[in-house]
Design a protein around this nucleic acid. Structure first.
Length: 517
RNA sequence: GGCGUCGUGGCCAAGUGGCUAAGGCAGCGGAUUGCAAAUCCGCCAUCGCCGGUUCGAAUCCGGCCGACGCCUCCA
């Protein structure tokens, strides 16, 4: 199976060729932890997850690493703007965060580490709920924190200075010299001349005076007043934004050249351009990552997510049904949405298209997920204890894999899955084995299959009492229907629906299932 | 202005020169049902616009229009 991806570095589809046979070293730019993650963040993260799961499906041994950015960087390279962490603190104190923080969850809102820890934990919880596999792995290895890797950053900075790629400017700031790296701009298609003339209006002359070239970017900033600071020979201060990814990617993946690097499309420039410059200049290698794969932004009801239009949704908002029912209304969805539905909604569009998050989409996704869940239940019931092994040469898996191998064509892959769902079941045990392999990639029916329950976030409800109550209601329903007592039967149906469950009649009697959305 | 991605039915979305343009959701008709739900069967598009290449184009080329992103906060 030839696997092809669109490589942002070359702007074309390329056949994937691992550095080491059978291995994939993959890095995904992770979240900043000054607030709860929003659905746009997770669109990108889950795209990385889908990619990773597919590579495993295809037989690769995948090492996946993502960062936790817990350093409160300034908003630009100069002293302009407020530090992110300080902004988080003041918002926290004013109760203005996008989602309420429980009382006492952060003891001291003046301690940036406590804030970062709180939101890191929230991110990991969201990740687990949405089936982001990396969150279940060893966090030291797979979800490193920037603040745990300052030494490594300083080491890389020294190396860059030694090799003539970085310098200490007269204001004491350490900058990377973009002119020392001829290929700076290759990823984004920029040239130094264009960058100079463009400048986006955000760079003022006084910021630039100490740099050798206007595009030079900060590696270390001495600043004793910064809220998070570390000792170094360059003065007590803090690292630049880009250096953490260069350092953690190669350290955690154990290689100066990695296979795949993913992130949102906005990171192409400057972040990834700068990562490439730093890493390649430090390593002397001809590449940092062989494949750069970027996901497009998510929209909400056809427009860019925005706080002013009330469409800036965190993952938690969506889970709680705290999002608008449509573009023309302020009415909220109002019901909980199952994480599997959110996951599917966020992965169902091709990564190089804008994903349009809509209430309608949630409804569609819920139907699709329900179909998958019910199909699986049917297979399990029919297969009984029989277990069959299937390989990738199974026709369904072959077509499923072929679709995803083509630049992660999830739509075509779902067409394969849906045909599989509607075809007659000849061998339930075999079909179940096929389904499990598909679900290892999609991870929606169920989500987080095979994960250690101890690692899962506490799930609400699911207690034995509730199950007993529901089972009783089913029996009462069946009895009422058998007695043709339609009034009672309808009453029971209403009650079950109010409890958040779907109800349907089957030849075997009344069956209920948790409402997905 | 520079560099990119994209434009297929009501919505989401395949299609990488040639059988009747995948699949999902919604809708419509029918079967089923105490009524529903679910399920099953059937129906529902000529591909942003214009021109070109070709025996033949949604698919290739050129132009135009439109959406989106980046050009030092941003997934």
């Amino acid at each position: 199976m030839e696997i092809r991806f669109y490589n942002s570095l070359t702007n074309q589809l390329e056949a994937f060729q691992p550095i080491e046979q059978g291995q994939v070293k993959m890095y995904s730019c992770g979240p900043t932890v000054y607030d709860f993650a929003h659905i746009g963040n997770f669109r990108t993260f889950l795209f990385g997850d889908l990619l990773r799961r597919f590579m495993e499906f295809a037989g690769y041994d995948v090492q996946h690493v993502s960062n936790i950015t817990d350093v409160g960087h300034m908003t630009d390279d100069a002293d302009e703007g407020e530090d992110k962490m300080e902004v988080a603190m003041s918002k926290l104190k004013a109760g203005k965060k996008s989602y309420q923080v429980p009382d006492g969850a952060i003891e001291n809102p003046n301690d940036p580490y406590q804030i970062a820890d709180f939101y890191t934990a929230a991110f990991i919880e969201d990740s687990k709920r949405l089936g982001y596999r990396i969150a279940f792995e060893n966090p030291q290895q797979c979800l490193p924190k920037a603040t745990d890797n300052i030494d490594g950053m300083l080491a890389m900075i020294r190396q860059l200075i030694d090799r003539g790629h970085a310098y200490v400017a007269n204001d004491g700031v350490v900058y990377f010299s973009v002119e020392s790296f001829p290929e700076y701009g290759k990823l984004s298609g920029n040239t130094l001349e264009q960058l100079q003339s463009g400048a986006g209006g955000r760079v003022t002359d006084e910021n630039q005076s100490s740099k050798r070239h206007p595009a030079d970017f900060m590696l270390w900033k001495p600043d004793t007043h910064h809220i998070m600071k570390w000792e170094s020979e360059f003065g007590e201060g803090y690292p630049g934004w880009h250096i953490e990814c260069s350092v953690m990617a190669s350290k955690m993946l154990g290689s100066e050249v990695i296979d795949i690097h993913t992130g949102g499309e906005d990171l192409i420039f400057p972040h990834h351009e700068c990562e490439i410059a730093q890493s390649r200049c430090a390593s002397g290698e001809s590449a940092f990552a062989n494949y750069w794969i970027h996901a497009r932004f998510l929209f909400v009801e056809g427009k860019k997510m925005s706080k002013s239009s009330g469409t800036f949704y965190t993952v938690r908002d969506v889970m709680e049904g705290n999002f608008k029912k449509g573009a023309e209304t302020d009415e909220l969805w109002g019901k909980k949405v199952d994480p599997a539905v959110i996951r599917f909604e966020l992965i169902k569009s091709h990564y190089r298209d804008n994903l349009n998050f809509t209430a309608k989409g949630i409804e569609d996704s819920a139907n699709q997920v329900r179909k998958l869940i019910e199909f699986r239940a049917k297979l399990e019931q029919q297969a009984g204890d029989e277990v069959v092994e299937v390989g990738l040469d199974h026709p369904v898996l072959q077509n499923f894999g072929k679709a995803l191998a083509n630049d992660l064509n999830i739509s075509e892959a779902m067409a394969v899955v849906n045909k599989f769902l509607s075809a007659p079941i000849e061998n339930p045990a075999e079909s179940l084995a096929v389904f499990k392999q598909i679900n290892a990639v999609l991870s929606v029916a169920p989500i987080n299959e095979g994960m250690d329950p101890a690692l899962l976030p506490e799930s609400a409800g699911e207690d034995a009492d509730l199950e007993a109550v529901l089972e009783n209601l089913c029996k009462e329903m069946d009895a009422a229907r058998a007695a043709k007592d339609w009034g009672t039967a309808d009453g029971i149906r209403d009650k079950i629906r109010e409890m958040g469950f779907e109800i349907r009649q089957t030849p075997e009697g009344t069956v209920i299932q948790k409402e997905l959305a």
